[in-house]
Nucleic acid binder design. Structure first.
Lengths: 213, 213
DNA sequence: GTCTATAATTAGATAGAC
DNA sequence: GTCTATCTAATTATAGAC
């Protein structure tokens, strides 16, 4: 297998996500990140400028993947009827749950960074999180007005959704010990998504309705 | 102000919680922990045996405080009627939300440790988390049977509650940037608790009913 | 581009004076 | 018990041969 420039960069990015997710920025070492893909530590400074630049590139990479997962959902606009808006929102929640299960690094890194104010946090919030936060808040307000959504303030619901959706996967090693089950199993993930959607949207007209792709 | 033996131990424990919560076990430095309370780094090895022992003592300390907050709630037993059980459960959730707001270190440390299997994680799960997990699962099953609880599997509801309840406080620095509000303000905390209880227990007979103390 | 060697810094732990 | 000094190990980053 050839190790082209892009190949090694991709491998380093994926390795960085795992290490930064598991240990945080300070706890992760560039040696471990390199070793995990059979590279040497100085290659990180060669392919990326610094540990910080590697972190930023890895975060961009991962939020990019999340964006791809949600890209083909219809954009909510003012003309949607509430039932259709709710179905689209439900589908977005399901996809977010699946993404959180497949890529726990995203929310692990979020939590690691969000516990202390820093330049990295501000960069990540403005670049990646705020667009999601704003979109969720606005749609939720309309679903509340339509009587479909649970009684949670639109300013807070982002944290309820993200927290409830991702914690079993963020804390997957703990969940394995605690439940004896494998939280990333397909059936477990879908059950979690179903429960979350039904709880968040008790007024969903037809829970089985799936949006068109 | 005197600095007795117990005094300095308490200060070091509190400082350790903040640092371990913010940076994780690897990222936190014993020097910073000591400096935060105007002590010197070797005092940690004097008053505690090691960084690891300090961590364990700090975790015990914090879970002990959570236990105190919940201690006077009536133990659920098989004879409780569902409405009373639900009222007690709702009160426990409210107190957990308040505790998470006042002591975000608890859930920060949980998340830092739970993202990777380790001796520290196993110790913490068996000693502190499993009793809570078991209690929540059993009560939730009964509330589901009574038609009071939202449609979430009893094996998963622990993560829904903990994740949704604590993330705004775990990620408080992010929430401040994102919402412009202070998530630890009393009104914000109570609104979050109210929304969570109403969402988790849509069949609660009387949401305003408070349990006796 | 890769790899060895190493510089510069910082970590946790310990010894010993007081 | 506290504090200075220091040990060993591990960190990120860089220099230079290939």
């Amino acid at each position: 297998m050839r190790r082209t420039r892009e190949d090694i960069r991709q491998r380093l990015l994926d390795s960085a996500l795992v290490e930064f997710g598991a240990k945080g920025f300070d706890g992760a070492s560039t040696r471990s990140i390199a070793q995990r893909v059979d590279a040497h530590q100085p290659q990180i400074n060669y392919h990326f400028d610094s540990k910080e630049a590697l972190w930023a590139a890895a975060v961009d990479h991962l939020f990019g993947r999340l964006g791809e997962e949600l890209a083909d959902l219809p954009r909510p606009d003012g003309t949607d009827d509430p039932a259709r808006l709710a179905a689209t929102f439900a589908e977005a929640v399901r996809r977010f749950v699946r993404f959180a299960a497949a890529h726990p690094e995203l929310n692990r890194i979020m939590v690691h960074e969000a516990t202390e104010d820093s330049d990295r946090l501000r960069w990540m919030v403005e670049r990646h999180v705020r667009p999601m936060y704003d979109a969720i808040r606005d749609v939720w307000q309309r679903l509340r007005d339509a009587g479909i959504a649970a009684p949670i303030d639109p300013a807070m619901v982002h944290y309820v959704i993200v927290g409830a959706a991702s914690l079993p996967f963020v804390n997957a090693p703990e969940a394995r010990l605690l439940t004896g089950a494998e939280p990333t199993d397909l059936a477990w993930v879908e059950a979690h998504a179903d429960g979350l959607v039904a709880t968040l949207l008790p007024g969903l007209p037809d829970p089985s309705l799936k949006v068109e792709r």
